[in-house]
Amino acid sequence: MEKSNFIDYIRIFARSGHGGAGSRHFMRNKLTAMGGPDGGDGGRGGHIILRGNKQLWTLLHLRYYKNVLAEDGENGSKNNCTGREGKDVIIEVPLGTVAKDEETGKVDAEILEDGQEVIWLKGGRGGLGNSNFATPTNQAPEHHQPGEEGVEGWKVIELKVLADVGLVGFPNAGKSTLLSVITAARPKIADYAFTTLTPQLGMVEYRDGRSFCIADLPGIIEGAAEGKGLGHRFLRHIERNACLLFLIPADSKDHRKEFEILHNELEEYNPELLQKDFIIAISKSDMLDDELKKEIEKELPDSIPHVFISSVTQKGLTELKDLLWNTLNKPV
């Protein structure tokens, strides 16, 4: 089986660096037999940092990066010398990456911009040396602090595709064909279910040099919200799409039922997805005459705009682009 270069889920063990211990030291040299405290502070432990990189589109480079361990800070030393800080570990990730704690499911960080840096796991603070605890009544303190421990645990890095428009539909609805016609993307196309196993992105050229991004996502099936088929792996990618384009083939047995199944899966997975703008496109409509189109229109929801298209004859594609552009850029 061919391995995909698109990796959108990574599980790693991460540990930030421990802080160095403060020093307990007193000045001693040939001129000073019993000097005061001069123990330096310990260095900070290394952070683990996430950095956005717009050149990346997958987590493939992290596939074998199973243990991420930042360097510990050095201990403080005499002459009030502070220990060296531990080296930070910088993990470059594509835009749209979410970092979570595996045990609690809490979102630790979210990367949406190129060059954005987020300290994911903070390194432990260095301990104070005994020179910090000198007072008029205690001029020779023995006390010094150990460094703080770093943070560790099993973590999850997920990628949610960033696109303006997400293509939603059952397998074989014609999503990949549409993407190949209106963009420069070349997704795999064949006459069987789940041809698309990973998200495919393409830029749609609009008028006057303007453009928007559209994503062909793996086909949804009934029960996807419960994890059936590609389940949650598919559904999480549509969370960031501003507009959802429902693609329903003209030869569907029940257009209304097909839309309701898709709508229901989105609602079960995350009810907030229903707040997005919806558009319905009836694909493969080159086989329809005006009478059949009117019959199909009666099955579709009145509140959702629709358009009849054919990727083969390119009929209705200009109207579809206009509808998508106006929806994406409508006044708030």
Score class of each variant (00 low, 15 high):
1 M>T: 05
1 M>H: 12
4 S>R: 06
11 R>A: 11
11 R>P: 07
15 R>F: 06
16 S>H: 06
19 G>Q: 09
21 A>R: 14
24 R>F: 05
25 H>C: 05
25 H>R: 02
25 H>Q: 03
26 F>P: 09
26 F>Q: 05
30 K>Q: 11
31 L>P: 04
32 T>A: 06
32 T>G: 03
35 G>H: 03
37 P>K: 00
39 G>V: 12
40 G>E: 01
48 I>L: 10
49 I>L: 02
50 L>T: 05
61 H>R: 13
62 L>Q: 03
62 L>V: 03
63 R>W: 06
68 V>P: 07
70 A>N: 01
71 E>V: 13
73 G>M: 09
74 E>W: 00
75 N>I: 01
77 S>L: 04
77 S>N: 02
79 N>P: 01
80 N>R: 04
82 T>D: 02
83 G>Q: 15
83 G>L: 12
84 R>N: 11
95 L>S: 12
97 T>D: 14
98 V>D: 06
99 A>P: 09
101 D>L: 11
101 D>N: 14
107 V>P: 02
112 L>K: 11
116 Q>L: 06
117 E>Y: 05
117 E>F: 08
123 G>P: 14
123 G>R: 11
123 G>D: 11
124 G>I: 14
130 N>V: 11
133 F>E: 08
134 A>D: 11
135 T>M: 11
139 Q>C: 04
146 P>I: 10
149 E>G: 14
152 E>F: 13
153 G>D: 09
154 W>L: 09
158 E>G: 05
160 K>C: 14
161 V>E: 13
164 D>G: 04
166 G>A: 03
173 A>S: 15
173 A>V: 12
174 G>T: 09
178 L>V: 08
178 L>D: 04
180 S>M: 07
182 I>Y: 00
183 T>Y: 04
184 A>K: 14
186 R>F: 02
188 K>S: 10
189 I>L: 03
191 D>I: 11
191 D>C: 05
192 Y>H: 13
192 Y>F: 15
195 T>V: 15
197 L>S: 05
198 T>K: 07
201 L>V: 03
202 G>A: 01
210 R>P: 00
210 R>S: 00
211 S>Q: 14
213 C>R: 02
213 C>Q: 03
220 I>E: 10
222 E>N: 13
225 A>V: 02
227 G>A: 07
230 L>Y: 03
235 L>E: 10
237 H>C: 00
241 N>I: 01
244 L>K: 14
249 P>M: 00
251 D>Q: 10
252 S>F: 07
253 K>D: 15
259 F>G: 10
268 E>R: 15
268 E>S: 13
273 L>P: 01
273 L>I: 02
273 L>Y: 00
277 D>E: 15
277 D>L: 02
284 K>Q: 15
288 L>P: 08
289 D>A: 09
294 K>L: 04
294 K>C: 03
298 K>L: 04
301 P>V: 12
301 P>S: 09
302 D>M: 08
305 P>V: 03
308 F>H: 01
314 Q>Y: 00
318 T>V: 15
325 W>N: 05
326 N>K: 13
326 N>M: 08
332 V>C: 03
